[in-house]
Design a protein around this nucleic acid. Structure first.
Lengths: 142, 142
DNA sequence: TCAACAGTTTAGAATTGTTTTAATGTAAAT
DNA sequence: ATTTACATTAAAACAATTCTAAACTGTTGA
């Protein structure tokens, strides 16, 4: 199952040359059947553990940002010290578990589509994100 | 127009003693007629400029977090290097202007209320936030 | 094929927002 | 008044992210 040409295309589409390091990143991001959420730290650890290859943080950031700008990754709006990304780039929303700091996809069956009646003059809507924060019942606010 | 007793109450409710510095913060946050959005940096600058008093960053953070935990301030979920807060603690949503990094209130007339049909087992919904990112038409993704 | 260029990788340094620390100061209870 | 617990402060620590500059590599075109 060589997806290398797919990865190469994605990289070129994102304005990046297909290098060994970047292909490794693609493998981690785009070969799993299920989409997933990750932080840069998560991703770096996965690469180091699974692929026993060390990649510079700067390379990871650079590649992830290019993919995000191209639309191959989505950044989730969440207030956190870290940035969260999603390999699922279709329109969908999220639960955020405050107990575990975990993001959970919200299926389209679980929520009605959001209907926005007005927009800011001269501006175009780039995205609509719904974040539902949840926590155990017996949990204080923060 | 002395709101000092109101401020004192808010501070005590938040588990904080009413000190000179904290009353100054209250004045900036709660005396304006209109609610507003701010970052810690914004707030610190307002205090220094308007009140010609210097307050330690640690005090600002400490006070803002206590107010947030008590529900006198809301933190907006937005992916940014900084945290954004809102003195409007009623249920409402936001536009975020990517060109200017500005938050704009979304009136309840502008958006239908979000209907969530399913929840995570054993968890309670703490908040539902909608963030509508906008930018000029002729603007690239990032 | 190979030289030359433009883009890439890397470790480490720099930057930025936030939190912690430890010494000093102050509100409030006794 | 005295005591105690909480506050303020500047500075240090910290963590995520970005930048830097030197070494390296893919690509292009002669």
């Amino acid at each position: 199952m060589s997806n290398i040409s797919i990865y190469t295309d994605k990289l070129r589409e994102s304005g990046l040359r297909p290098t060994r390091q970047r292909l490794k990143i693609c493998e981690v991001l785009f070969s799993p059947e299920k989409t997933f959420h990750f932080t840069i730290n998560d991703l770096t650890k996965i690469i180091e553990n699974k692929l026993s290859e060390k990649i510079s943080l700067a390379t990871v950031y650079n590649t992830i940002h290019a993919f995000k700008n191209k639309g191959y990754l989505k950044e989730i709006s969440i207030n956190s010290d870290k940035s969260y990304f999603d390999t699922n780039v279709t329109e969908h929303h999220h639960f955020f578990d405050e107990d575990t700091n975990e993001l959970i996809d919200c299926n389209n069956d679980d929520i009605d589509s959001v209907n926005i009646k007005k927009n800011i003059t001269g501006k175009k809507i780039k995205s609509v994100e719904v974040l539902i924060k949840v926590a155990s019942d017996n949990q204080n606010q923060n």
